[in-house]
């Protein structure tokens, strides 16, 4: 895969958020609509194409804690705001921002997490659980050793304590479990077929009209493996 080859060539140990999602999309995992822009005009036209409101994030290899660095703007509503935000990010003195990620704003109110890790003994394992800030606080998660059968994926969803979040909560559509199962099965497959991909986090995996969408993602590489 070109994205991985390029990243390894430049010595990166992980893909950027945008690259991570491009990679996941290649495997058929639904991700937010988004575009990297390098000018104010591009920012405005990309935002218009995606549809307001959008999210804008400073983009760059060294930018890992974007929220803490005030490089995330939520709910950008129109042309003026998009242009302003672009100028604000790229004119920062404390940090060099050359590119900005313009992203579809997913208003899903349920945040899940999915991921891939490699156990030293059992190899690739898939995680599923409660996402967002709750992932680390509640650790309401389930693991399965890859490859996952559809039944494994379905059972994982029943494993978490907060499983009711997948149902029709407060008038929202229930989560499409088939689509969710496909994501989990795919993560396991990636782990088995691509040794170069060491770990994956999809967090949050938001639910939009019942469909799970990867809103943020991190793909960690193992440059020693090809």
């Amino acid at each position: 895969m070109k994205i991985i080859k390029d990243a390894i060539k430049r010595g990166a140990t992980a893909l950027s958020e945008h690259e991570s999602k491009l990679l996941l999309a290649e495997f058929g995992i639904p991700v937010t609509g988004e575009k990297i822009v390098k000018s104010e005009d591009e920012a405005a036209s990309a935002a218009a194409a995606i549809g307001y409101p959008v999210v804008m994030k400073g983009s760059g290899e060294k930018l890992s804690h974007k929220t803490e660095m005030n490089l995330v703007a939520l709910d950008v509503r129109n042309d003026t705001e998009a242009r302003e935000t672009f100028r604000r990010f790229t004119s920062r003195k404390d940090v060099e921002v050359k590119e900005v990620l313009v992203q579809q704003m997913v208003k899903g109110d349920r945040e899940l997490v999915a991921g891939l890790t490699r156990d030293p003994q059992f190899g690739p394992c898939v995680m599923f659980g409660l996402g967002g800030i709750f992932t680390e606080i509640l650790e309401d998660i389930a693991f399965r050793v890859a490859p996952l059968t559809k039944l494994d994926a379905m059972e994982m969803m029943e494993d978490i304590r907060a499983k009711k979040i997948l149902g029709p909560v407060r008038g929202k559509a229930p989560v499409d479990r088939e689509a969710l199962a496909n994501i989990l099965i795919t993560l396991g497959k990636i782990g088995l077929e691509h040794d170069v991909i060491k770990e994956i986090d999809i967090n949050p995996l938001k639910v939009l009209d019942g469909k799970p969408v990867a809103v943020d993602a991190l793909v960690v590489l193992d440059a020693g493996k090809k």
Binding site: V113, F122, C125, M127, F143, V145, E155, E199, I200, L218
Partner: peptide, 24 residues
């Protein structure tokens, strides 16, 4: 002690994975 970058890996310690695979 394992050096990991993602949350998934940091939460997937050996005890957790063992319990998961026994359940699986």
């Amino acid at each position: 002690g394992r050096a990991v970058l993602s949350h998934t890996a940091s939460m997937g310690g050996s005890a957790v994975i063992w319990r998961s695979l026994l359940q699986q």
